[in-house]
């Protein structure tokens, strides 16, 4: 199966932070035949192991997505909400969302909404005729469909389903690995890497790589400025707000990319973190690196990346497995 089709299937599965059961099942089905064993844990992480004799290498890609959670429903059935994960109100206004049971809805602004100072408290979810099916505590995610056009992927939940697709594709390609490989699809990353924290503790890896999206800096007026661009290949993480990557992990990724002719770029992400942040300080410390997929408009209903960058990430993950 090509990587676009795989991403499209995964992006359509409901799974905001804390509600990863459906996406875990979808990932598990797509790992069939590739993994020697697949396990789940208390927080909802899914781990696929491919046995090897060497080092214990952990790859982590979070499978939860940004979402909305209903906090209050008024007498007319309009739902107020909070977010699961960080949100830009600008991105939410007008978004079409979908609940776990398939109920569709729109995110709208009320009369006190101020365009200069947008606040979530001035917005609501309108479910139209299905108001009665939504309860306080129910969650919704962006409901759009993934499309590809001229090598670009436009889709909700590229963060981080495109990276889940990359990890699945890589796991299928490493049949008899040198190292003992653990592909971990983590829960609750959007809430501060909670899944990666317990997964890394349980696993005690010798080395780890987190696979996640990173902000591309190639849009008009982009702040903060960054060199990462769409089509530049897989991004080798040097640091973000949660981690300074281990020099050996960085050097290995850079040298493998050069040796194997994988398009790659160097990445410093500002203001955000990844699973690597939780993993590298687990127990007595884990040498940790990051392989990132450059993406635009992260956490909006229409994230954009390049298919070729996802494929470069797959190649770099396969190369990293031999560290």
């Amino acid at each position: 199966m090509d990587i676009f089709a795989l991403h499209k299937e995964l992006a359509a599965v409901f799974g905001p932070s804390g509600m990863e059961a459906d996406i875990a099942l979808a990932v598990k089905e797509r790992l069939a035949g590739a993994a020697d064993e697949v396990t789940t844990d208390t927080l909802g992480n899914l781990t696929a192991r491919i046995r090897g004799k060497g080092k214990k290498v952990m790859f982590s890609a979070h499978m939860d997505t940004f979402g909305l959670i209903v906090t209050y429903i008024d007498k007319d059935g309009f739902a107020r909400f909070a977010t699961l994960g960080g949100a830009e109100p600008d991105y939410l206004l007008g978004a079409r969302v979908v609940f776990a049971d398939g109920t569709r809805a729109a995110v709208c602004a009320d009369g006190s909404y101020n365009r200069k100072e947008p606040r979530l408290t001035d917005m609501y979810i309108d479910t139209g005729a299905n108001a009665q099916s939504v309860k306080v505590g129910d969650a919704a995610v962006y409901g759009g469909e993934a499309v590809t056009q001229g090598g670009a992927l436009i889709s909700p939940h590229i963060d981080n389903r495109a990276c889940c697709a990359a990890l699945i594709a890589a796991s299928r390609a490493v049949a008899r690995p040198k190292n003992d490989l653990y592909f971990v699809f983590t829960a609750q990353a959007e809430l501060g890497m909670r899944g990666a924290k317990t997964a890394a503790y349980a696993l005690e890896p010798d080395v780890a790589f987190s696979v996640d999206v990173t902000d591309a800096g190639d849009t008009p007026g982009c702040k903060p400025k960054t060199q990462v661009k769409l089509g530049g290949g897989a991004a080798v993480k040097l640091m973000d707000d949660s981690v300074i990557c281990h020099p050996d992990a960085v050097a290995y990724l850079v040298s493998q990319a050069e040796k194997l002719g994988i398009a790659a770029q160097r990445e410093l992400l500002a203001g955000k973190g990844t699973d690597a942040g939780a993993i590298h300080v687990s127990r007595a410390g884990v040498p940790t690196g990051g392989i990132s997929l450059p993406a635009r408009h992260i956490h909006s209903p229409n994230e954009i990346c390049r298919i070729s960058d996802i494929e470069d990430c797959v190649r770099l993950i396969i190369a990293a497995a031999d560290i």
């Binding site: 932070s17 959670i69 209903v70 906090t71 909070a82 977010t83 699961l84 994960g85 309860k135 306080v136 505590g137 809430l191 501060g192």
Partner: peptide
């Protein structure tokens, strides 16, 4: 009651 506890 049901109390929605978002993130933390």
């Amino acid at each position: 009651n049901i109390e929605v506890m978002t993130s933390r």
